[in-house]
C-alpha cells in the first residue's frame, strides 16, 4: 500500500486516504476537435512499466487533487506536485532522469 505526500496539506498519507484518478496531464479535447483527438483524450491511456504520472485526490484529507510521478515497476515515488500544471515540473523531470537514466523522458 502506497504512501504519498500531499503537496497541499503536506501530510504523508497512506493510500486508504487517497482516491486514484488515472493518468495525469491529459489534454481535454472538446467540441470542434477531431475524432482521433477526442478518442485519444477519452480512451487512450499510457500503461508503462516504469516512470508514470498519475492523478491522486487526498479524498479523506484536504480534498485536493495532486499529481504523482511514480515507477510502476518498483513503486518508487519520484515526487508529488500540485495539479495546476500541464506538465511535470522541470526539477522533477531532472530528478527522474538522474534515477532512471534510460527513461525516454516525459511525452
Amino acid at each position: 500500500m502506497l504512501t504519498l505526500q500531499c503537496p497541499y496539506c503536506g501530510a504523508r498519507v497512506e493510500e486508504t486516504e487517497l482516491a486514484p484518478g488515472g493518468e495525469a496531464h491529459l489534454k481535454r479535447f472538446g467540441p470542434g476537435s477531431s475524432d482521433a483527438d477526442f478518442e485519444s483524450y477519452m480512451f487512450a491511456r499510457k500503461n508503462p512499466k516504469g516512470v508514470h504520472f498519475e492523478r491522486w485526490r487526498h479524498a479523506y484529507g484536504c480534498g485536493k487533487w495532486f499529481l504523482a510521478a511514480r515507477c510502476t515497476a518498483t513503486l518508487e515515488v519520484f515526487g508529488t506536485y500540485p495539479a495546476q500544471t500541464t506538465e511535470p515540473p522541470a526539477d522533477l523531470i531532472a530528478k527522474i532522469k538522474e534515477k532512471r537514466p534510460t527513461w525516454e523522458g516525459y511525452k
Binding site: 496539506c9 501530510a11 498519507v13 486508504t16 486516504e17 479524498a59 479523506y60 484529507g61 484536504c62
Partner: peptide, 11 residues
C-alpha cells in the same frame, strides 16, 4: 488539525 479517515468515514 489532521483530516483523515476513521474506519470508513472522513474525520
Amino acid at each position: 488539525l489532521r483530516r483523515t479517515r476513521a474506519a470508513q468515514v472522513a474525520a
